[in-house]
Design a binder for these strands. Structure first.
Lengths: 343, 343
DNA sequence: TGATCCGCTTGGAACGTTCCAGTCCTGCGG
DNA sequence: CCGCAGGACTGGAACGTTCCAAGCGGATCA
């Protein structure tokens, strides 16, 4: 199978080509692109015309080499675990790509070994392939933030520096306690009194944060929390078992869960017992995943404002990378509640 | 390796630094990195030691400029529509990032205007920011493939060139007809005789392809298809309505759907009528989304081998970009069936 | 011994851009 | 008419890498 390549595509026009065509020097063309107000209007018009005619676009590699910046933002994606409802990353990546694109940055994805949470960062950093990183999983004990700080690498974290409160890097996060409070209060307003919590293991700061919103909401109405909480792994099976036990022992009329995955576990239990979600028992999840949106009868869920998170992260990045933004060190956003049939 | 703790991060070491330390010339270091077999073993060892000590990593911008290639693969992501179960892209992006990473390529994501399907490509192409593209939505009438071909831009499509059978670009796709056949045959083997189809509008080639697998399987057992098929939009609501009508008029005992989104619509109808999926009526979806994995009682679904798709796409890219792979023009992969409680 | 070749190494040039230090020109005050 | 300030534009250099043509020493062969 021989491919007839005919001719190679013509090399793209360079600054020098434009300069020649417009009858000016290279530097003038460069100024026309980067500092248009330095040129006389007639010269500017002439150069822009030449740029248009030739279809010129500055060569990124050359620009990167000279300016020592790539206008690329690195983000490591971790192997998605199957069998969970987690769609947060997908939505977030979309938002980040769009927002950073508007700011002139592209997003470079890279994968790392499951074993080494630092894998991949070092390489991109030393080869100056990216200007900054966005770090997403800031769970307890994750060394990425500390490591990047020690390297003086610019980065913004999606997630609070739980285990390092005096870290100096910018971060953006969503107030999980407020979200759980929102969900619990919503159920209280619907008349529920016994509202159970299914969350994550105690060493998950995010899980404990969300849980505190649930207990805060109950206590604000002088309702007890004792015996109504369960802490398990983030799997459907765990949610199913935990909800079964809670139903038998504590007789709640509603569940608030730390994730949609756990909430789906509750739906499993309800289905097995012939109980209708929303009518017999209310269920609220967390993350507003696609699962929550399509499962019958619709799963009420706390929705993280990921679009806003992306906007704040890009703002912080611009601040880091020299633009005169001076964003605050940490930004905490408030989630909303997507109410559906399950509550 | 100790770093000075100055205010500003020290500039990364260059080829020249390594050369000086190892007592060789720049070119020798370059060869040590790119063509190690050109060096005498002792020289190589000395250079590698220097590289190690300095923590050297070639500057990408300089390398890109010189070699006229960025080792970046561009992929446009489109705004995810809410309310569908589509998790295909997420899984695929993961696989692509991992596979291309192993081949020395990174994935650059970019967003484009919803209105203009070509937005973003031109810019990256002219600025030589990426070496090639991966094009994902090859629905009928999508001009991307034709446009990129006319620009002689290297790209690989995930999806057959439906409307341009004699296109010359490589593509990788999953055999949708085989998938629907698999699903239908699975139901036939379980004793079902009246198996309905809910698919997409007739102008969707992908939808018609999948549908042909369903009708092929039924005809192979001399079973009728008349009145058992419905063609609707890809939304939960459409699936709900279509399944309600089919249940009333054609009394099927099983549904095969062109997507998990539509299958979720069927589950809605069953829930409304007090029918149990899997026990009263069987349902099979398409895509094996996270929704299928977590919804009670588990949705049987056709699973696309996206990991293999990514592998084939990277192979094709390497072929395009000069490596002596010489991959075939088109690759068609066969999906599998993930059997769960709904069938 | 001298010519030839081969493996390894070398310094200069080039990729396309931006930075820097000018040069040219125009207009204005003296 | 000169001197000078300042705006508009220019040309050389540099970013860090790889390509290229040539250099060099040692081994082989006549």
């Amino acid at each position: 199978m021989t491919r007839s390549l005919g001719r190679v595509p013509a090399p793209p026009p360079t600054l020098a080509d434009v300069a020649e065509r417009a009858g000016v020097s290279r530097q003038t063309v460069s100024n026309a692109v980067n500092n248009p107000d330095l040129l006389r209007t007639d010269t500017l018009a002439r150069v822009q015309e030449a740029i248009e005619e030739l279809g010129y676009s500055p060569n990124r590699a050359a620009r990167n080499l000279r300016t020592r910046s790539s206008h690329l933002i690195g983000m490591r994606i971790n192997p998605a675990q199957e069998g969970t409802a987690n769609a947060t990353m997908d939505r977030f990546v979309h938002s980040l790509v769009e927002t950073s694109g508007e700011a002139g940055y592209h997003v470079l994805l890279f994968a790392g070994s499951h074993l080494d949470p630092l894998d991949g960062y070092d390489d991109l950093l030393r080869s100056t392939a990216v200007d900054a990183f966005v770090v997403t999983d800031t769970y307890l004990g994750n060394p990425q933030a500390a490591w990047l700080e020690s390297r003086r690498a610019p980065f913004v974290a999606f997630g609070r520096p739980w285990d390092n409160p005096d870290g100096t890097h910018p971060w953006v996060d969503v107030d999980g306690a407020a979200g759980a409070d929102l969900a619990t209060t919503h159920l209280l307003d619907r008349g529920h009194q016994r509202i159970a919590w299914i969350g994550w293991r105690k060493d998950s700061r995010i899980g404990e944060d969300r849980r505190s919103g649930w207990s805060r909401a109950l206590r604000s109405r002088d309702l007890p929390t004792t015996g109504l909480a369960s802490r398990v792994e983030d799997t459907v099976a765990s949610g199913r078992e935990a909800s079964a036990v809670l139903l038998d022992e504590a007789h709640p009329s509603a569940f608030v869960c730390a994730s949609d995955t756990l909430a789906m576990g509750v739906l499993h239990t309800l289905a097995e017992r012939g109980l209708a979600p929303g009518r017999d028992v209310a269920v609220v999840g967390f993350d507003d995943s696609q699962v929550a949106q399509v499962v019958p009868p619709g799963l009420t869920s706390v929705r993280q404002p990921l679009e806003d998170v992306a906007v704040e992260i890009v703002k912080a990045l611009e601040g880091l990378l020299g633009h005169p933004h001076q964003a605050p060190k940490g930004v905490l956003l408030t989630p909303t509640l997507a109410v559906r049939g399950s509550s």
